[in-house]
Measured scan of single mutants.
Amino acid sequence: NQASVVANQLIPISTHLTLVMMRSEVVTPVGIPAEDIPRLVSMQVNRAVPLGTTLMPDMVKGYA
Rank of each mutant, 00 (worst) to 15 (best):
32 I>L: 05
4 S>H: 01
21 M>W: 03
58 D>H: 12
59 M>Y: 10
58 D>Y: 15
5 V>E: 00
27 V>W: 03
30 V>P: 15
18 T>V: 06
61 K>M: 15
17 L>F: 01
46 N>E: 08
61 K>I: 14
42 S>H: 12
44 Q>M: 12
53 T>Q: 11
11 I>L: 08
35 E>S: 15
9 Q>S: 09
22 M>I: 08
15 T>W: 07
29 P>A: 04
16 H>W: 12
1 N>P: 11
52 G>S: 07
21 M>H: 09
51 L>E: 15
3 A>E: 12
37 I>T: 07
46 N>I: 10
32 I>Y: 02
27 V>M: 06
40 L>N: 00
26 V>T: 13
60 V>P: 01
28 T>F: 15
42 S>W: 08
26 V>W: 11
2 Q>H: 12
12 P>I: 04
24 S>L: 07
25 E>N: 08
2 Q>S: 09
33 P>R: 09
47 R>Y: 10
4 S>N: 02
50 P>V: 07
13 I>T: 13
17 L>H: 00
47 R>L: 09
25 E>Y: 09
29 P>H: 05
26 V>D: 09
22 M>A: 00
27 V>Q: 04
41 V>W: 03
53 T>P: 01
16 H>D: 09
15 T>K: 06
47 R>T: 13
27 V>N: 03
36 D>R: 09
14 S>F: 15
11 I>C: 02
30 V>W: 12
29 P>N: 05
35 E>I: 14
49 V>G: 02
24 S>R: 09
45 V>H: 01
2 Q>M: 13
60 V>A: 02
47 R>D: 07
23 R>T: 08
25 E>Q: 12
58 D>W: 14
1 N>I: 14
48 A>S: 15
50 P>E: 13
31 G>A: 03
42 S>N: 15
33 P>H: 11
35 E>C: 08
8 N>K: 09
38 P>E: 11
9 Q>R: 10
33 P>T: 06
31 G>L: 01
29 P>I: 06
4 S>C: 04
43 M>D: 04
23 R>V: 07
64 A>C: 09
49 V>M: 04
40 L>R: 01
27 V>L: 05
59 M>W: 11
23 R>D: 06
13 I>H: 14
46 N>D: 11
11 I>W: 01
20 V>R: 14
26 V>G: 05
10 L>E: 12
64 A>M: 14
46 N>Q: 11
25 E>A: 15
63 Y>L: 06
15 T>E: 09
